[in-house]
């Protein structure tokens, strides 16, 4: 056997076991009926997929899309100037860049908890505002869509900044000089030259933020509570409390299908995500 094949064998087995086999099981389960005590039973049915159109669930899908879209837009708006600042900071680039990447290395769970600590009714923000006598009753900052969006932006901002920085860094400075030379003011240069040339980075960043936000579970669970349910929470619920595995499987496949369509659309435009 060739060395290459020997080297690839463990990964092939592992991928088959941890990725493809579970996917196959999910596909089969999604077409079966929920068992009386959890689990799955015959007969075959497509009812789990038709249930996705039920308004109760459609609303959750739409809300997830909305929250992920707003979080992505905010990441873009907040991330672009930051990426620009880093790209233009000369020899300190690496320092500023690592300050953006640093949160990557600290626990996502703990960073989400930090916002719970800040936003709770008895959290630091409310305590501060009450101590300053700006408010008398605590504001409900936690457990709403806004808190989830905030948590997502906080968690995924680096995913937006990195690709934006990479394209800005590669941008030929003489193109910006040419724009100024041809009479464009800094704002015109930004709109007519920098933005269009950064389109690949913007697309990559948007996909890198939107796809995980859409499938998020932890952020909406901790910061959204029972009020902001997203697709991820719905999936988790089917596999645990509701014990409706076939529907959970159908939801999972729907979520994956959406993610794949988005990624495929982005790749079709010639960008390499990996």
């Amino acid at each position: 056997m060739k060395l290459r094949n020997i080297f690839l064998a463990p990964t092939a087995i592992l991928m088959a076991v941890t990725m493809l086999a579970p996917l196959a099981i999910i596909m089969v389960y999604s077409l079966l009926t929920r068992g009386a005590y959890g689990g799955v039973e015959l007969p075959w049915t497509i009812e789990n997929f038709t249930r996705l159109w039920d308004p109760v669930y459609a609303v959750i899908f739409l809300r997830s899309f909305w929250i992920a879209a707003v979080a992505t837009a905010l990441c873009l708006v907040l991330g672009f100037p930051l990426a620009m600042f880093i790209a233009r900071s000369g020899s300190r680039k690496n320092l500023y860049l690592s300050l953006v990447i640093l949160p990557f290395w600290t626990s996502f769970l703990i960073r989400t908890y930090a916002w719970m600590f800040l936003l709770r009714d008895t959290g630091i923000l409310n305590s501060l505002l009450q101590a300053l006598r700006i408010i008398r009753e605590p504001l409900s900052l936690l457990y709403n869509d806004g808190a989830v969006i905030l948590g997502l932006v906080y968690g995924f901002l680096p995913f937006m900044v990195l690709p934006l920085y990479a394209t800005l860094e590669r941008l030929d400075p003489s193109l910006l000089e040419a724009a100024a030379d041809l009479g464009a003011r800094p704002r015109d240069t930004l709109v007519r030259v920098t933005f269009p040339l950064c389109a690949p980075g913007i697309r990559a960043g948007a996909i890198l933020v939107f796809v995980p936000c859409l499938g998020t579970y932890l952020t909406s669970d901790l910061l959204g509570g029972s009020k902001t349910v997203m697709i991820g929470n719905l999936v988790q619920n089917q596999f645990t409390a509701s014990r409706d595995w076939p529907f959970g499987a159908a939801l999972s496949l729907a979520l994956m299908a959406i993610a794949m369509v988005l990624l495929f659309a982005a790749r079709k435009r010639g960008e390499e995500m990996l």
Binding site: V17, P22, V211, F239, L255, A259
Partner: peptide, 27 residues
């Protein structure tokens, strides 16, 4: 197919990965 399945594993939402693994283990 190997690159494809690894790509898939990178982009699959964690909750889906976890739930499908659980389904496999239980089976």
């Amino acid at each position: 197919w190997l690159s494809g399945s690894m790509y898939l594993s990178l982009v699959t939402p964690e909750i889906v990965t976890g739930a499908s693994l659980l389904a496999l283990f239980q089976w």
